[in-house]
Amino acid sequence: MDFVVSQLLTGLSLSSILLLVALGLAIIYGVTGVINLAHGEFVMLGAYCAWLLQTQLGWGLLPSLIPIFVAVALLGLAVEYLVIRHLYDRPLDTILATWGLGVMAQQIVRLLAGGELRYVQMPAALSGSVNILGATDSAYRLFVLAVALGLFALTWYVYRHTSIGLQLRAITQNRQIASSFGINAGRAYRLTFAYGAGIAGLAGALISPLKSVSPEMGTGYVVDAFMVVVVGGVQSLFGTVVSSGLLGELTGALAYLSNDTIAKALVLAAVVVIIRFRPQGLFTPRIRA
């Protein structure tokens, strides 16, 4: 029993990280249709911000979260304004442009902060462990899970129950008609992109105490996050949650049965098959376009 619970908790922890990273990507992709390959770099920048604030200013992780969100969101705003907005009608080129941006971000960080691994301290209040049904789990991991679910709830609320969310849904259904009703689609896209980037930054900051921080750390996350989005379905926020839960637990289980590498390979292979047979995602209801 302990074993099952602890295995589930391991999977849940993987899932919460996946959800954090994928949420921003899902919003950006769902609303604007842009595949943001620089998403992992936003995550990486968030982690570096946490490291910088901690080592230079002595800030703890928790008080730095809001400034980090704002900083990375502003960066996202700039990126959208300078590059992405010119490419909305060329989806393949957005992949390339964001890939190039990712390379630049990695390189800038490597030049400024050095290529070596960095470590961020866990908040002292959360460094203990908690006992759940006989299995122990680190309090911080549970905190990350709570934040991930909280962010999801917030995003869902904004998307479903506010006027800006209504506008976004209108734009995703039909941009032309939405525009002719006076919705400023350009502004909505920009805000969406900034929000998605900000969440990515937050994700990076939250992950930083769990993993080492390096300029290349984003590459792995963007692949994982993309897989979550694809499996979950582009238009479905709940799909994102379910699929990050599914992929996290699956990775955890497969990693236990074989090893991390093979687990990753198997999950990726499964994702390839899913893209092939259900490119609209597993959890998207069929709607008439």
Partner: peptide, 26 residues
Amino acid sequence: GGRVAGVYSAIITLAAMVVVNLIIVD
């Protein structure tokens, strides 16, 4: 054969590469 095109085929090629790479490393 499944009419996967554009962005999705780009992503599949990327994922397939990572799979092969992981297998070779493993």
